[in-house]
């Protein structure tokens, strides 16, 4: 138990889970039922999408890394250059712009009844987000492959007749880079939550709120953009000049406060978990 708490990553994981539970209990007691339901849905949807982003980032990242490695060793360099060129292009598009346009596209598809299943909306949202995130994982995996191919064990394994795909996929990426990949995926989870909330907030504030409500699932970002949540957040500013009002925040402005807390505290916790994980495994 002490070991569990002493490690920064597990300690922060416990803090995150326990704090979220404490907030839920507080909300069950003091927040009205419809708002509680919305906040629960928003939290659940946000993390389902973020976890899907992690899964798709891993799949895409692994596939592209292996593809690039295979193309790199070919004598014909054109396909390799084409793929790296495309990757650099994706890198040059700010993620928020790419994801925003993807979400607008999804909204139109849902509004036009081309997509009707909620699960499919989740999957498409996650894929479109992972398209702009997976490059970080590719960079990490390629660095690891480059590092290990310079070591003797790579040549030794090749001389022993072990196929290159097994050396790369199993010996380098799975056996020797799994912890690095896991650490990156924890960071990706945090980034996915941040981007998800930001894009949903922007769409809900800037584009038509009614369309968004009908077409896209409720997330913490879209909940924060609702007028009642915004008023709750505005109350924090009022508290800065009227400290006596602080107590009201935790009873009368609970919806906005809960959503803002869940976003910010989740981001901080995931950041500390990723750092702690790297420290524990000396990455």
């Amino acid at each position: 138990m002490m070991k569990f708490i002493r490690s920064k990553d597990t300690r922060w994981l416990s803090i995150w889970v326990l704090s979220t539970l404490a907030v839920w209990i507080w909300d069950i007691v003091f927040l009205n039922k419809p708002a509680l339901h919305k906040v629960f849905n928003g939290f659940f949807n946000t993390f389902i999408i973020a976890i899907l982003v992690v899964v798709f980032t891993l799949i895409l990242g692994w596939m592209v890394t292996v593809l690039l490695h295979a193309l790199q060793s070919r004598t014909n360099r054109a396909p390799y250059l084409a793929v790296t060129f495309l990757m650099n292009l994706i890198r040059s598009i700010p993620q928020i712009v790419g994801i925003l346009f993807a979400y607008v596209g999804i909204t139109l598809l849902v509004a036009g009844s081309v997509i009707t299943s909620k699960a499919l909306v989740f999957i498409i949202m996650a894929i479109s987000m992972s398209l702009f995130i997976f490059l970080e994982l590719v960079d990490l995996m390629r660095d690891r492959i480059d590092h290990f191919t310079k070591l003797d064990f790579y040549s030794a394994m090749r001389v022993c007749g072990i196929p290159e795909r097994r050396v790369v996929n199993f010996d380098i990426l799975w056996k020797n880079s799994r912890l690095h990949i896991q650490n990156k995926l924890i960071a990706v989870l945090g980034y996915a939550v941040f981007l998800q909330c930001s894009v949903d907030f922007i769409i809900s504030v800037g584009l038509s709120t009614e369309v968004n409500e009908v077409t896209l699932p409720t997330t913490l970002g879209s909940l924060l953009a609702k007028i009642d949540s915004k008023q709750d957040i505005l109350a924090i500013g009022y508290t800065l000049t009227h400290p006596g009002y602080t107590g009201h925040l935790f009873f009368e402005h609970l919806q906005g406060m809960t959503v803002a807390f869940l976003i910010v505290f989740s981001l901080v916790s995931i950041y500390h978990i990723a750092n702690g994980y790297a420290e524990r495994h000396r990455l």
């Binding site: 930001s198 924060l224 924090i236 500013g237 803002a260 910010v264």
Partner: peptide, 15 residues
């Protein structure tokens, strides 16, 4: 770690 919109809306009434 606060997203910009959380900070901005928090102090919008005063600044």
């Amino acid at each position: 770690f606060c997203p910009a919109y959380v900070i901005a809306y928090s102090i919008r009434t005063e600044f």
